[in-house]
Amino acid sequence: MRKLILPVLLIAIFALMPLIAELVGKNALMTLSARILMYAMAAASLNLILGYGGMVSFGHAAYFGVGAYVVGILYSHWMSEVPIFGLFPGSNQLLVTLPIAMIVSGLAALLIGALSLRTGGVQFIMITLAFAQMIFFLFVSLTAYGGEDGIIIRRANAVPGLNMRDKTTVYYVILVVAVLYFAWLWRVVNSSFGQVLKGIRQNERRMEAMGIATFRYKLYAFVLAGMGAGLAGALMANFLRFTSPDMMHWTKSGELIIMVILGGLGTFFGPILGAAAFLILEFYLADWTEHWQLGLGIILLLVVLFTKGGILGAVDRLKGGRQ
């Protein structure tokens, strides 16, 4: 039972957020809350490879951006009624665009992962960064889809029976998708697959000696992580009604890593807390001074140098520690 307290509490908070925002008359709170949900999904997908699998990918924002662009491109083709490559029709149905966004970002992750995972250590960090930069520049070069300016999506994707022109409805759709995603992720990290992944992080050679094809497991995890980020990106495109190459800039990948670390590496709820901490910090610091990144930098530096295990680690230590 105790295990259920935190998830139920989190869902309740997020579900009540639109009401709270209306009560205090600050609509920005609902936007902030939605951003936390979507970044939490992206950070959690990164945590699957970074925290559980020990793979330091410095290009995770690329899949986030690819997911967003799938929604944008499908929408622009639906608007112009010109099939993509003359073959596939565009779409504005959320139930169509989300799965396609996941498939496309998963394929991108499969290709990049299959090549990158042949290296390790520093080289792995750099090659994932390099591939992400290539995707970034690829989308900058797509003048047909706005180039550097990106695509404006006039209306959020439709869901039968829902009025998606209402921001609050979109918010609840995001919440439902996020809850489903985290429920699925819970099953993944607690499955035998998740155990193998943790084992690879601790000692890859030993896992290999036990007869496990570690490369394949790492690649699966890499692809699943890419799909998760793609899903989050697709939601983001719907929420912002906009996509641009900025979404996959390398500093965004850095921010995703920061969220994972802030919350606590390799913990289930860490990315949610980390994304919340990061975005709330940004929200209030940016409100207060345009030099908010100075504060962020100092806090981040202190967290890295003097804490072990982020927010959840600090909470554990305060409780007397299970370390």
Binding site: F58, I257, I258, Q293, L294, G297, L300, L305
Partner: peptide
């Protein structure tokens, strides 16, 4: 490990950029 190094020096970038702006 490399992860901590990437993060700490990323934080330094943010700090130095803002200080130069200031």
């Amino acid at each position: 490990d490399h992860l901590d190094q990437v993060l700490a020096t990323f934080a330094l970038i943010l700090i130095f950029n803002q200080m130069i702006i200031l």
